[in-house]
Write a protein that binds this DNA or RNA. Structure first.
Lengths: 156, 156
DNA sequence: TACGCACCTGACGTCAACGTTAGGTTTCGC
DNA sequence: GCGAAACCTAACGTTGACGTCAGGTGCGTA
């Protein structure tokens, strides 16, 4: 029983790729542009990730796939999120940090609002599109059964 | 009153760009990859488009924007559509063409089915995403008002 | 009929998001 | 303790979807 992981639940590159449709290169590229970072390394320099990073990657993939936002934009979103998170982790609670907390929270809230708005717009336009294509499909199915008249203007 | 158009409703490049958020270059590029074609040209070689092409362009933009499909895929979709359309236009109705009509119709129907499925998936996943982010927003708003407790694990 | 703007055809440039190759090191199962 | 497979860094290559420039032509209007 040779346990590979050093810390409980640290994942090798391979282990991450088993969970997500990525390549090693993509993982390294995302690190290069500041989207993720390995939680640690082996003594030999191999990257190790934690489960939080996997979730982060899932979020990245969803943002890409569903909203088509660039990695740059994704980074801004995740940064706002992380800045707030980091601040919450730190225990400093003097007035200074309270100010900063409000600032970061507001920034994050704004990011969230815009994202949600974007999603709502997308849902709406895709739905409208779906309806149009659904109608086309119905017509084609009808056409397939009944053949078509020369002039489609004639009702029957 | 100097009417530019030769045929009723033929549009110059500029007229098309007034209706759609494109550049001349994009118009030419789409022609290059076989997505559109000018309905005619002026004697001097300037492109003229009809309204059908404008609608085609709108469809292209929607497919790109909403589903994120490549121009290559879009071409396949539009081709299936156009093949059927062309066949319907032709008046040949012998058995041969009937066979072909069925074939093209089926192909188009299949294309439509897959597209609609894709849209449904997208609607679903974006909606799910929206709900997740909505929840985050609620939390952040609550947090903003009430500050946050050290251990968020405690219910209250 | 002259002028300015729109348009033309090449052709090369660009940018994001990776792919690929080279040449070496690490890890792991046996 | 060894060999195959996974991983490393560094660097150049690729692909889609256009942008941009050069050098010339067409078009509408004053």
């Amino acid at each position: 029983m040779t346990v590979t992981e050093q810390e409980p639940g640290e994942l090798t590159v391979e282990a991450v790729l088993r969970q997500l449709p990525l390549t090693p290169r993509t993982l390294r590229y995302y690190e290069e542009v500041g989207l993720i970072a390995p939680s640690s390394r082996t003594s030999g320099g191999h990257r190790l990730y934690d489960q939080k990073t996997v979730e982060r990657l899932q979020q990245i993939l969803r943002l890409k796939e569903n909203l088509g936002v660039s990695l740059q934009e994704i980074r801004e979103i995740l940064d706002a999120e992380q800045a707030l998170d980091a601040l919450r982790q730190s225990f400093h609670q003097n007035r200074q940090d309270h100010e900063r907390q409000l600032e970061y929270t507001d920034r994050y809230i704004e990011v969230l609002r815009q994202l949600i708005e974007k999603m709502d717009e997308k849902i709406e336009s895709v739905t409208a599109m779906r309806d149009r294509y659904q109608e086309r499909l119905q017509k084609s199915l009808y056409f397939r059964e009944n053949g078509f008249r020369k002039n489609e203007t004639e009702g029957e």
